[in-house]
Design a protein around this nucleic acid. Structure first.
Length: 308
DNA sequence: AGTAATCCCTGGCAGC
DNA sequence: TGCTGCCAGGGATTAC
């Protein structure tokens, strides 16, 4: 579940290691990951290409080489790490002290390492993705103008695109629950399940509140809470709930600071009443029924077994 | 066009 | 201990 803060943390890490490096070889081990063009065309296209720029838009990473644009989406469990030949590999997988789940760190190619870029200096960048929901796309400079998955993204937080006027315009006429809209990348780019739940908590909004029911003040609170929770995630190096690691294979620390996500049954950090969990848009949704009432002004009592 | 459901995939985990 | 079935979820696709 790499979302904006995690992808940005990876981007910063990679910018410090692969920028300016020249590709000597591309190895695709799992064709499922590659959307376009056909896997067979990648090695010849990228050979001798130098990575000139690494940017991010929403949850996409965009590598610009001399003649190509490489668009990478990490999906649910994608890990993009730099492998420094002078750094000693971790012989054992790191086990997170909180969750007990396995993390990556620097290690050799394994059965989940689906794609690798090798550089002329002997170092490499590996793509590891357990659930294989990630997607890699390679475009020529002109072709990239047709990359609709990129150009259809909504407003980008932390840029001038993220304005009150455009935020309001995105909410206009929507009848869906606010959580569903926030998960839609065509509205605000880069939010995923974790930061949506956190932003809704900060704004005091129940995830099932319909967009059309939001007051001006509700919208204003939400508009402010989104960059706040994203910034906090970025400051703490991202949220490592399951598989996220940065470009060096290290876990983030934001999971310790989450207000509601993954805390169902635990006391709300604001009012101490237990955090609730329901399903909205097929996503586990965590909220405080007291701090985030379903009906404005009424203390909510959402049914935990209700499916939406 | 907007909205909702389905599917992809693996590993952790509860239950037996 | 080993098996089974459920769950996690981003987004493309499909259905309505």
């Amino acid at each position: 579940m790499p979302e904006l803060p995690e992808v940005e943390t990876i981007r910063i890490g990679l910018a410090g290691s692969v920028l300016g490096k020249t590709i000597s070889k591309v190895t695709i081990r799992n064709r499922r990951i590659v959307v376009r063009p056909q896997p067979g065309r990648w090695p010849r296209a990228l050979k001798a290409q130098t990575i000139r720029q690494i940017s991010r838009r929403g949850k996409f990473l965009l590598f610009t080489t001399d003649h190509f644009r490489l668009l990478v989406h990490l999906g649910m469990t994608g890990q993009l790490t730099y492998r420094d030949k002078s750094r000693i590999d971790d012989p054992n997988f790191f086990v997170h002290p909180l969750t007990g789940l396995q993390k990556a760190r620097q290690h050799a190619v394994d059965k989940h390492t689906h794609l690798s870029l090798y550089f002329t200096d002997g170092n490499a960048m590996h793509y590891r993705d357990i659930r294989q929901f990630g997607k890699w796309r390679l475009y020529g400079m002109e072709e990239f103008k047709q990359a609709k998955e990129y150009w259809s993204l909504g407003i980008e937080p932390f840029t001038s695109q993220y304005s009150w006027a455009r935020f309001l315009a995105g909410l206009e006429g929507r009848k869906t629950p606010i959580k569903s809209l926030l998960l839609n990348q065509r509205f605000v780019a880069g939010l995923g399940n974790i930061y949506v739940d956190e932003a809704l908590f900060e704004a005091g909004l129940h995830p099932l509140r319909l967009c059309e029911s939001l007051t001006e003040e509700d919208k204003r609170k939400l508009f402010r809470s989104i960059p706040r929770v994203l910034k906090r995630g970025l400051r703490y190096g991202g949220t490592s709930f399951q598989n996220y690691v940065n470009a060096r294979g290290e876990a983030g620390a934001n999971q310790e600071r989450l207000r509601v996500y993954g805390r169902s049954g635990k006391p709300c950090r604001r009012c101490r009443s237990p955090v609730s969990r329901i399903v909205v848009s097929q996503r586990g949704s965590h909220f405080c029924a007291r701090c985030q009432p379903r009906e404005p002004g009424i203390e909510g009592a959402a049914k935990s077994e209700t499916k939406y």
